[in-house]
Structure formats: structure tokens, C-alpha cells
Design a protein around this nucleic acid. Structure first.
Lengths: 141, 141
DNA sequence: GAAAATTCATTGCTATAGCAATTGTTGCGC
DNA sequence: GCGCAACAATTGCTATAGCAATGAATTTTC
């Protein structure tokens, strides 16, 4: 039987997420948290609005995700001086260290997922995904 | 900047889902429902366990997804005669018609997502996704 | 400079998803 | 055939995600 691309894409992403969970759990992370930490690690302290834009999710999602991340001591929230509407979210040392550890751990995962892929194939896959991403409205990657 | 494959995959799947939502809403469907309808359309009446296996989600997820699908009149649930532990989930006529309409509607979406892809590229992308899917533990596609 | 529009964070509601525990039912070992 | 293991559906709890509405602060418009 033939599968539609959207099915292959959704299923692969879904199974991928389940496969990553044990790696993340070793570091005390859930599956959605690394992308928030990544934004902060790459861009430094951000407002929640910036996090939402970068992660391409609704601001409400970020708002709710920050509570457990703060409780776990990965980041801190405070009010911005310049604009009291905005918060300023920043990684703690623990947050930085945990994200760095995840980046290392992730290598193991990726080599498993792409086992048997040549360098050309990896490049081609990345290029295809990026093109499809842009075709359906993605603006960031 | 370079993006990890898992990021490209997760983001593309995520944006894809948001892009499909309006098409689905025209038919009164939510983003998770088509895969359940597909299983029933392809395989005929199923137990919830079969649906969970086919959709690669926890049986609890199927259990909770059936309530709204039943309320919308897309399917019916009854107890199996042979094994009273199992239920028997079956599409209604409305469910069949709606799924068929979705399959048509989906064509429009896919041609948008894969605009600019040659036939070879489509085949290559599908092949790559399937290999990655299997590498991370997928057993069905 | 005051009224209107916009922006940011948050909360409520729903959908999708995993895991653990529970209940009821079947099947197996003996 | 009885007890126990396995299995099916369900429910509770949490995480991720979208959308709508709200309240507070800022910016724009006039």
C-alpha cells in the first residue's frame, strides 16, 4: 500500500518523539522542553512572545510550559524594566548545562535514526523537509 | 545556521498539521481524527485495540477520541458478541462519506506541500521518511 | 494629551498523547 | 474446573497544542 506524504511525515515525527523520550528523561526533560531551552541558549534571555515565535507555537503554550521549567530550576522569569507587559525569561546555569548535555545525548539519537543514510542522503532529506516546511507556511527554518 | 534532522522533521510535521486544520474543519474534523477513520475505512470494523495498534497511539487515546467521533455521528461503538472485553467500532455512512471527502480534499493540500517536487524527489522523500521511521522503531508503514 | 488600537502574558476550554492503575473478561496451567 | 495470568476498555494525571477572551501596559491617532 502507498502512504501519503503527510502520513509518513506525521508518523515519523510521532515515533521519533517517542524514541527520544527515554534520552530526555535521563536529563529530567520532557519532549517539548528542549526547543524552549534551545531558543534561550541561542538567543539569550527572551520575552515569552519571542519564545512563542521562535518555537512556532501559541504564546499560551509557552506560558504554561514555563511553570514546570521554572520549578525544575532550568530558567527564571522576571518582569522587564523597559516594558512591564513583557517578562524576561533566562536560563539558569543548570538550564545551560542540561541543554548542553542534551545536545550531546541527541547525537546518539540522530545516528540511530539516520543509520544507513549517506551524507548526500542526509543533505537531501534535510533539503526536502525544508522545502516542504516552507511550502506549508513555515517561515523560520 | 544548521538544523538537526529531528528539528526539521518535528517542525515540518507541526506546521503541516496547522496547515491542514482549515481543510479538515470544512468537513467538521479535527486534526487527529482522519487516521482513526482511515483505519476503519481500510480494515472495516475494528476493536479499539486494533485501532490503537494501527494508529500507533496508546489505547487510552483512542478511547477518548471515540467519544466526539461518535457524537458527531461518524462511527458507532458496540460490544463484541464473541469477546465481551472488546468493543466493535464501525463507520457510519456519514463517516464513510466524510472520510472519502477528506481524501479528495487532501489532494489539494499535498500538492501545495509538495509544490516544486519532481516525481523522483517525492519518491525519494517518501523513501527517506520510511527508513528513518523504521530506524526509530516504526513497524507499520 | 486623551481616546483608540495594539501588544503581552495569562486563563479557560478543548484536542491529542503517554503512562499507571482499575475493572471486567477471557484463556491457560494444572 | 479453578486460580492466575493476560488482555480490553476505561479513568486519572500530566504534557503539548490551538483558540478565544481578559487585563494590564504601551503605542498610535487625532
Amino acid at each position: 500500500m502507498e502512504y501519503a506524504i503527510h502520513t509518513l511525515l506525521a508518523r515519523t515525527a510521532h515515533v521519533q518523539q517517542n524514541a527520544m523520550r527515554p534520552y530526555l528523561q535521563k536529563l529530567g526533560l520532557t519532549t517539548g522542553q528542549p526547543k524552549v531551552l534551545r531558543c534561550l541558549a541561542m538567543n539569550g534571555p527572551c520575552s515569552q512572545r519571542m519564545l512563542a515565535d521562535y518555537c512556532e507555537v501559541d504564546p499560551a503554550v509557552i506560558c504554561r510550559m514555563l511553570d514546570p521549567l521554572e520549578r525544575s530550576g532550568f530558567l527564571t522569569r522576571k518582569q522587564s524594566q523597559k516594558d512591564r507587559r513583557q517578562g524576561e525569561v533566562a536560563l539558569t546555569e543548570k538550564g545551560k548545562a542540561t541543554f548542553a548535555a542534551w545536545e550531546e545525548e541527541y547525537e546518539k539519537f540522530e545516528s540511530r535514526m539516520l543509520a544507513g543514510f549517506s551524507d548526500e542522503e542526509r543533505k537531501a532529506l534535510a533539503g526536502f523537509l525544508k522545502r516542504a516546511y516552507r511550502n506549508v507556511g513555515g517561515r523560520l527554518l
